[in-house]
Amino acid sequence: MIHPKRLLEGEGTEIERLLLASGRAARPSTRAKWRTGILFFLVSIGTVSKAHAVALLGAKARAWTVAQWLALGVGTGAAGWVAVQANVPPDPVAVVDPVARRVPAAPSLHHAQPRVVAPPEPAPAPVNVVEAAPRLEGRTQVQAPPTVSRSKRAAAPAVVDTPVVERSIASEIDELDRARAAVGGGDAKRAIDRLNRYDRMFPQGTLREEALRLRIEALVSNGERATARTLAQRFRALYPESAHSERLKALVKEP
C-alpha cells in the first residue's frame, strides 16, 4: 500500500501512538532557532550580494565590491540583531514539560511530580523556582528544587495548581479515540460533543491538531460545510506543514 494510514492516526496500538506522539511533541529551543535564523539570513544575504556583485562588476573590482556587499549585509544584520535583541524573550532556563505539568502526582508514574526538562542546549544554571514560560499557561506555578533528592521530592507535597481534570496523553488519545469512533459510526453530533469535551479538558493538548482534523470531518459529516471550511482554513494556518491540509481542503470543497 502506497498511502497507508499513519500509526498516530489510529493505525497503531496505543503504546505505539504514545511513543510517536512523544516524538512529535519534541520542540527546539527558541534561542537556538533565533540564532540559526539570524545566521541563515546573513549567509543568504551574503550569497545574493556576492552574486549581484559578480554579475555587475569586472574582475578587478570584484573582491572589494563583494567585501563591501558582505560588510553591508553583516552590518545591517548586526544592527537588526541589536534592534530586536531587547525584545527577545529570555530562553527559559528550564521548561516545564507541558504534558508532565498536566499529570498530577499519580502514584504509578516514575516521576510523580511535574518534571523540569532541560532545554536542548546547555542550560546556564539550575533554578529553584521555575515559572512557566510565557507561552505556557500562567496558572501553573511549579516549585521544583532540583537540588532535593528524588526521595525527598516524592515525599514533598506537589505545589501544583493543575486543572481539575487529569490530563495526560493517554487520556487525550482516549478522548480522541471516542470521537473518532463516533465519526466512523456516523454519529457526528456525538463526535462534536466529544471534541468539545476534549477542548475543555486539554486546552493546550498535544494532539490538538488531530482534534481539529476530527472536528472538521465531523462537521462535514454533519452537513455543516461552511463551518468546516472556516476551520479548515484555520487548520492550514495553524499547521502549515501538516500532511492533512490537502485532504481537508478537498474534504470541505463544495460537492
Binding site: L18, L20, S22, V99, S108, H111, I169
Partner: peptide, 19 residues
Amino acid sequence: PSVDELTDQKRARQVLDRI
C-alpha cells in the same frame, strides 16, 4: 510498563529513541 508510565513524555521519548 503501564500506559501511565508512558505518559511521562521524557521517558516515552527515551524509549522511542531506543527503539
